[in-house]
């Protein structure tokens, strides 16, 4: 490696290249739908586990707090690609066979849960203690106070951070190809490997698809945030 070097220009891309890559759009869209399914699955797994871990970190007894902190540390430290491979090969050691898709949802979901837990933890800790006191004084149990008072506030406060997580993990779904999930990046490579000159146009088309999905996803989340906005309950920065 070392010093930057000027490469020869690739054979020029012609209009014909763009037209023929355009004809692959349905294939790419089908691949993208796999990414979106992965995204839905991993955000769901990450949300449920993230909320639980955040609650344990903030309200759990000491032992569970340590466990939750360790959990977040582990899943934030291991590279995604490694988590994917571990989740795919690991269960086979115990005679469990899970499909590449399930393995990808679990691996990326566990990782996302660690990040989502940090978002929710911050939000929970931003809620004044008076809210808990008021709930307990009314006769709410600890769990009820969390369920009806703290979580609804924390989740609203988390929306901005959550939007960021959405944009990050959407891109992570392209890593699932490594364990055999045929998603959009894999489809783009198929195109490139049968039609070498289309490699670059296919990648550019995929990039544009991600731009569009991210734009609409964030737009949608922005609307949700607006609809759920409550005066006096904003993320304090």
């Amino acid at each position: 490696m070392g010093e930057a070097q000027l490469g020869l220009p690739l054979p020029p891309l012609t209009l014909e290249h763009w037209l023929s890559v355009w004809s692959y759009l349905p294939t790419l869209l089908q691949g993208l739908s796999v990414n979106l399914a992965l995204l839905g699955g991993l955000l769901g797994v990450g949300f449920v586990l993230g909320v639980i871990v955040a609650l344990l970190e903030v309200y759990g007894p000491r032992g569970l707090r340590l466990f939750a902190a360790g959990y977040a540390w582990v899943f934030r430290s291991i590279p995604e690609i490694l988590l994917l491979l571990l989740m795919w090969f690991g269960p086979a050691q115990f005679g469990l066979s899970i499909s590449p898709f399930t393995a990808a949802v679990l691996a990326l979901g566990l990782r996302s849960s660690a990040y989502q837990a940090e978002i929710f933890r911050g939000a929970l800790q931003a809620i004044p203690t008076g809210q808990t006191l008021a709930a307990r004084a009314l006769g709410f149990s600890r769990l009820q106070a969390i369920r009806y008072v703290l979580l609804p506030q924390a989740l609203r406060l988390s929306l901005a951070g959550w939007g960021n997580e959405f944009a990050v993990v959407l891109k992570d779904t392209t890593l699932a190809y490594a364990i055999g999930v045929v998603e959009v990046m894999r489809q783009a490579r198929y195109i490139g490997s049968r039609d070498f000159p289309l490699t670059l146009p296919a990648y550019i088309l995929v990039a544009m698809l991600f731009l569009v999905v991210t734009y609409f996803g964030l737009f949608l989340l922005g609307n949700v945030e607006k609809r759920l906005r409550i005066p006096g309950l904003e993320a304090r920065r």
Binding site: L8, G192, S193, F196, L200
Partner: peptide, 28 residues
């Protein structure tokens, strides 16, 4: 990671040669 990527970089002048099995090379 994949063979076509090697070919693309060969075409772009970032590498000088690609060593590969005969049939795929003929395909390229």
């Amino acid at each position: 990671e994949t063979y076509p990527e090697a070919i693309m970089d060969l075409l772009a002048g970032r590498v000088d040669a690609v060593v590969q099995d005969q049939a795929p090379s003929e395909q390229a």
